[in-house]
Design a protein around this nucleic acid. Sequence first.
DNA 1: AATTACAAACCGACTATATGGTATCTAATA
DNA 2: TATTAGATACCATATAGTCGGTTTGTAATT
Lengths: 186, 186
Amino acid sequence: MSDTPIKRRQPKIMRKRILDAATEAIIDEGVDGLTLDEVARRAEVSKGGLLHHYSSKQVLHEALFDYLLSDLEETIAELIDANPHTLARFSLAYFDAVCNPNTPDYDKKRGVFFALFAVQPELAERWASWLQDRMVEHAATDDHAMARVLRLAADGLWASNMIDGPDSEPANREDVTLFLKNLFRS
Amino acid sequence: MSDTPIKRRQPKIMRKRILDAATEAIIDEGVDGLTLDEVARRAEVSKGGLLHHYSSKQVLHEALFDYLLSDLEETIAELIDANPHTLARFSLAYFDAVCNPNTPDYDKKRGVFFALFAVQPELAERWASWLQDRMVEHAATDDHAMARVLRLAADGLWASNMIDGPDSEPANREDVTLFLKNLFRS
DNA sequence: AATTACAAACCGACTATATGGTATCTAATA
DNA sequence: TATTAGATACCATATAGTCGGTTTGTAATT
């Protein structure tokens, strides 16, 4: 990336570098690209340095998951604040967080979740239970068919976007977004 | 599975055994479980025998993809025949093929696609272009927002089902299915 | 202020092993 | 007899993880 020399001895920054490197490795080369050596190379750190912070590959996977999930949570929280509808507030925010091109790196980072689920099935369980908790939390506003459709469509767009399918074309995405949001006005 | 001795010298059957074994390996152990040794073990064939039929891991991936895709195509074709609506006939069939519990092994096999996409990104491209071709083929009936929503929701259910999320619970799935199909009656 | 003591960050060579792939052989079938 | 299916043994290498060491920051002690 940048060829400015890296400030060492800043563990917080180093960890972020590593997680970002892992994210990009997956995006560029698929899950097989996520080797310790490759991540270390991209983060411009030694393998020893990498393993100092994340003591195994599994630990790295989990850290990456936590990192991405907290990022998503943050985005959702902001969107709920910005648009505090009563009806389906969580599902709408979820949709926008996952699919709205305005959210930063929406088209790259998000897809990494699926890759992580594929390599480490228990992360899928953690995702499922996270979502379950959110559903309980927002039961009053988001426990009905239309909200469910919204979330499912979001997941579909998410997936479609990851594989770069026809439905991820901007025109089609806007089309769908409009259609779904209109459902709430009738 | 069954402990009846395997009839040897039946290459067609052997190939199916191998592909099914690969499918189950992925389902049980994630993409890392898809090693040549593991697949051979499950298919109760030697590694040499396996590599006789599929000369490399990549070839195996592609064969598995083709296998699953042609299965999906078949199911979709049947559903279109059985329910030859004019409006969104493809998208409806797609939805049912992916999500309807009546289609065989819907809850297991389908998720394998995602795993394959994660290990071999060009398979994702092939999927995308397959879908693109279908969209051209069915443009007259399926090129509108509502049909797109149907397909996206199907993908979402697909994904949710793979990770066993809350939206994959039967009650919720039926709920959503009813809701979506009612859209076509108004 | 200088020194000492300790811990945390980081390095890079090394090892063990899992795994993809090859080479060669046997047996069945046509 | 030629070809295909399949088995067995083996090889090469990628890669996860170990380990001993070095550097740098920090805080107490003198």
